[in-house]
Structures are given as structure tokens and as C-alpha cells.
């Protein structure tokens, strides 16, 4: 029982970073109704920007964090301009394929400039907490706290500011938003930048916890974010949080009980089960039903 609770705690804390990745995916999907496959690689580019100033300039943690977020935001804006703005709103498949192409492009770019297999990343905090038989890594605790604060801030932004109102309007009905006088292009652009900034924070937290970074981080971040978003329900922010936490717990439990080699296998199995039996995820059932009904009408 102690092991089960410890694994659940570990999974919960690690899952908070997956939740951040899923929130970023969800913001973009919510506004555009399209998948951005190069979301993970743009975060990876930000993390490499952070590691570069850490290695070259021996910069402190705050500067590394800023460089990571800034790098992710710039890469996210690049992706938005190339894959989404340039191909137009109706081109769902074209934008997804072009985001895959940009994914490859960014990964190649990083591989050329960072030819080593792994690079060091500064640690976030080398402390730990123990209470009774349970143990929490400091880096995981910081990760969870940052994720919680960011989620609260995002909620305030969405529900207490005029930008949030515009974002929700564009997300719900872009045509109505346009004719209410909202510059939908600017809102989409800002949503991309915001999602990339959240992804940058997630990337910084994850890389700090692992204390290393590889060019495969983009692939990893895309998969984790995508799975967490799908488990929680595509387009739902509470769903993204729940999906991230659930994925973290599933991975931690399967690593402990089945072995590390089965971790991803179990996660994909659960994803598959969700897609078959509950395609709308934990919180997105209504959206899935709406989509199904609209397809029937067509």
C-alpha cells in the first residue's frame, strides 16, 4: 500500500508537467481546432536555448528559465506563421502536415548545432521532503507548485481579462467573434505565444528535473502532451490538467509494478482504451458528441 501511495504521489507530481504540456496543446486546439505537431519541438528549441546560455555563459537559473521560455515563444510564433497563418483557417490537413515538417526541421536544426547526444541542464533544487514512509523530490515539488500557479494564472487570464474573453469568443465561434469586432488573427497569434510560453515553462521544469536534454525531447513532449490532452478531453483545460495527472500516475504505477520498459506501452494502451470506449476523454465528452452530431448532419 505504501508503494502504491508513493507511486501515486510521484506520478501526480510528474503529471503536473504533463498537464502543462497538455494545456498548451489544448489552448492551440481550442482556438484553431487543429493539432500542432511541432508544439513539442518548439519547446525543445527553447530548452536548447536555455542549455546554450547555461553551458556557454554559465548563466543562472532565472536567466536559463527566461531563455527557455523566450526560445519556445519565438519558435511557437514561427510555427504559427508558417503552419497556421500562412495556410489559412480551412486547411486542417495542410496545417497538420506542415507542422510535422516544421517538427523535422527544428529537430534537424538542433541536431546540427548540438551534435552531442545529451547536454547538461541546471538542476532546479537539490532537496527532498520526507513525511513518514513517503518521499518527495524537491524538483518535483517545485514542478507541481509552478504548474499549480500557472494554472491559476491561466484561469484568471481566461475568465477575468478582456483578452481571455476574446480568446474564449474566438475559440467558440470565430465567425461571430470577427463580426463582434475582434481581431481573430491577433487572438490566435497571442494564443500561440501563450501556449508556447506555458510549454517553455513545462520544458524548463522537466529538463531541470532530469538535469539533461536531448534532441528527442521534442518528440517526447509532443507525445506526452498529446496523450494527456486526449485522455482529459480535447479542447478542455480542466481535462488537460486531469489528463496530465492521470498519465503521470499511470506511468509511475506501471513503472513500479511492471518495469520501466512497460511504462510507455501501458500509457499507449490506456490511450487506445480511451479512444475506443470514451473518445471524448474525461472532460470532453460533450465536445465529442457535438462533433459526432455535426458529422451526422453533414
Amino acid at each position: 500500500m505504501v508503494d502504491f501511495v508513493q507511486n501515486t504521489l510521484d506520478g501526480f507530481f510528474i503529471g503536473s508537467s504533463y498537464a502543462l504540456l497538455a494545456i498548451g496543446f489544448t489552448l492551440i486546439f481550442g482556438v484553431m481546432r487543429r493539432l500542432n505537431l511541432s508544439y513539442g519541438p518548439s519547446i525543445m528549441l527553447g530548452v536548447f536555448a536555455g542549455t546554450m546560455i547555461y553551458i556557454q555563459l554559465e548563466a543562472g537559473l532565472v536567466f536559463v528559465a527566461c531563455a527557455t521560455v523566450l526560445g519556445a515563444v519565438l519558435a511557437g510564433i514561427y510555427v504559427e506563421r508558417i503552419c497556421f497563418w500562412a495556410v489559412g483557417r480551412g486547411a486542417v490537413l495542410a496545417s497538420m502536415v506542415s507542422s510535422f515538417a516544421i517538427w523535422m526541421q527544428l529537430e534537424e536544426l538542433v541536431t546540427i548545432f548540438f551534435p552531442e547526444r545529451t547536454y547538461a541542464f541546471p538542476p532546479l533544487g537539490d532537496f527532498s521532503l520526507e513525511f513518514g514512509p513517503f518521499f518527495i523530490r524537491g524538483a518535483h515539488l517545485v514542478m507541481f507548485l509552478c504548474a499549480a500557479v500557472l494554472t491559476v494564472l491561466l484561469h484568471l487570464l481566461l475568465y477575468k481579462t478582456r483578452f481571455g474573453l476574446a480568446l474564449r469568443a474566438v475559440s467558440e465561434n470565430p465567425l461571430a467573434a470577427k463580426f463582434m469586432g475582434i481581431n481573430t488573427g491577433l487572438v490566435v497569434f497571442s494564443a500561440f505565444a501563450l501556449a508556447s510560453a506555458i510549454g517553455g515553462v513545462a520544458g524548463f521544469l522537466i529538463a531541470s528535473a532530469d538535469q539533461q536534454i536531448t534532441p528527442l525531447f521534442g518528440l517526447w513532449a509532443t507525445f506526452k502532451g498529446l496523450i494527456a490532452m486526449t485522455l482529459g478531453g480535447m479542447g478542455s483545460i480542466p481535462g488537460a490538467i486531469a489528463g496530465g495527472l492521470l498519465l503521470g500516475i499511470i506511468e509511475a504505477q506501471s513503472t513500479w509494478y511492471l518495469g520501466a520498459e512497460y511504462r510507455d506501452l501501458v500509457a499507449y494502451f490506456v490511450l487506445f482504451a480511451f479512444l475506443v470506449f470514451r473518445p471524448g476523454g474525461l472532460f470532453g465528452q460533450r465536445l465529442a458528441t457535438q462533433n459526432r452530431l455535426s458529422m451526422q448532419r453533414v
Binding site: L165, A166, R168, A169, E172, N173, L175, A176, A177, F179, M180, I182
Partner: peptide, 14 residues
């Protein structure tokens, strides 16, 4: 073309 998930007043404020 109204925003169904928002209240009547939120539609106006938007």
C-alpha cells in the same frame, strides 16, 4: 451567431 457558452451579458461585454 452568438456565443452559446457565454451568458447574455458576456456576449454584450465581449
Amino acid at each position: 451567431r452568438i456565443l452559446h457558452r457565454m451568458t447574455v451579458r458576456e456576449n454584450m461585454v465581449c
